[in-house]
Amino acid sequence: MRWSVLICVMAALGAGLAGCSSTPREPARVDYRSGSAYSASPQPVSRACVDGGYTVRSGDTLSEIAERCNVAMASLASANSLSRPYTLRPGQTLTMPRPPVHVVQRGENLYRIGLRYDIPFQRLASHNGIPAPYELEVGQSIQLPSGTTLATAATSAPARSTRPPARTQTPPPQSTLPATQQVANSSVSFDWPIRGSILSEFGRKPDGSRNDGINIEARTGAEVRAAAPGQVVYAGSELAGYGQLILLRHEGGFVTAYAHNSRLMVREGDQVTRGQVIAAAGSSGTVEIAQVHFEIRRGVNPEDPMRYLR
């Protein structure tokens, strides 16, 4: 897979997000590691945790300091050349680990960067003081929470499709599809969310961009259906590029995404069944013709939907 200033913040991801009220609320967050939803904000960092270091007080332990300063204990120990049993003395000054940085590349947005580092995009936004709609610039430095494991895999925004390529693939009519499409090595199965030609396939593109799903041509207003039973963890238009977006969490750590809709018919927290209508197709976001951007992710890793939908 920019997901415009929002009057209301919606929630839901492979674990959670929501609707309008007179006061915007922060989206519920997705813990990609466990696939569970959570809504609590990150714990505030103690004012004692400053760039110049933390002064150890009587009774402090390394684990408590790491939690108080929102850093990984291993990173804190490494930055101060400490080894087990991590003996500390009052008055000792601990150097805070230098937070890792991600430099924004062309086509990236905060959601994709969050997926890359296994960090909810809301936490990245809060950590960097980036307000909705979370617009980024190429070359911008994004501070990552201390202890983040730097990734090497490239990510990008959803493919922008305006017309079908010369050769397209069309899924069989819905009436001829088997009731379920078994996913290899998983009890989870997926159906086509909508019938249509494939406008953009999964994977790397000649211009260096990458599509983490497929884009399926659709008629404006056509029914978009849940590919498998699951829970709505996001339903909104908060993330630049995706337009009206729905994310569903499924068994086995899977998340499916349905972007560019014209209307959403489910809300955060709803339980949906296979084939249930969850949205009306459209061209919201950064696309010019009606389509559905569809992703299947296992944990944080995008999978080629065609492996499961054939």
Rank of each mutant, 00 (worst) to 15 (best):
P178D: 09
R210P: 00
A159N: 06
N211Q: 11
I130A: 04
S156D: 13
S189V: 03
G114W: 07
Q174W: 05
P158T: 09
T170K: 14
G203V: 04
Q140V: 02
I119V: 14
D207Y: 15
L136M: 02
E135P: 02
W192C: 04
A222P: 02
D212R: 13
Y117C: 09
Q231N: 08
T155M: 07
G196V: 03
T168I: 11
E223Q: 15
F190S: 08
P131R: 12
E217V: 00
F202T: 09
G129H: 14
T148N: 10
S146H: 05
S197K: 13
G208M: 03
D207H: 15
T148Q: 05
G139A: 12
P229D: 11
P133T: 08
I216Q: 13
A151I: 02
R204E: 04
R116P: 00
I142T: 02
I214W: 15
V188Y: 10
P193R: 11
N215T: 08
A226P: 12
G114S: 05
A228C: 05
P173L: 02
A179K: 12
Y134W: 10
V224I: 10
A184L: 10
T180Q: 06
W192R: 08
S209I: 01
V183I: 03
Y134A: 00
N128Y: 12
S200T: 15
G213D: 00
E223F: 07
A227C: 08
T180R: 14
P133I: 01
I142S: 04
A226I: 05
E201N: 14
L150K: 13
Q122A: 12
S187L: 07
A153Y: 07
N211M: 04
A222F: 02
I130L: 05
T162M: 06
R225F: 00
R204F: 03
L136P: 10
A153W: 13
G230L: 06
G129D: 08
E135G: 06
A222S: 14
I194S: 10
Q122K: 01
Q169I: 06
A153I: 06
E217C: 01
Y117P: 07
Q174H: 09
F202A: 05
E217A: 15
S209W: 04
Y117V: 08
P131S: 04
I113H: 14
E135W: 01
G147N: 06
A159R: 15
A154N: 03
P172C: 01
V183K: 09
S200Q: 13
R167K: 13
Y111R: 05
T220G: 07
R219C: 01
R123H: 13
T148R: 13
G230M: 04
P206T: 08
G208D: 02
P145Y: 07
V232Y: 12
S187P: 00
R112K: 09
T170L: 11
K205C: 01
Q174G: 01
Q143C: 01
G230V: 02
Y134K: 03
I119E: 04
P131E: 08
T176E: 06
T176Y: 01
I194F: 01
R204S: 08
T176L: 05
L177E: 14
A132R: 07
A157K: 11
V138L: 00
G221M: 10
N128D: 07
P164D: 09
R116M: 13
E217G: 15
Q143L: 07
R116A: 11
Q140G: 00
S197W: 04
V232E: 03
R123Y: 10
P145D: 02
F202P: 03
Y111V: 00
G129P: 01
S209A: 03
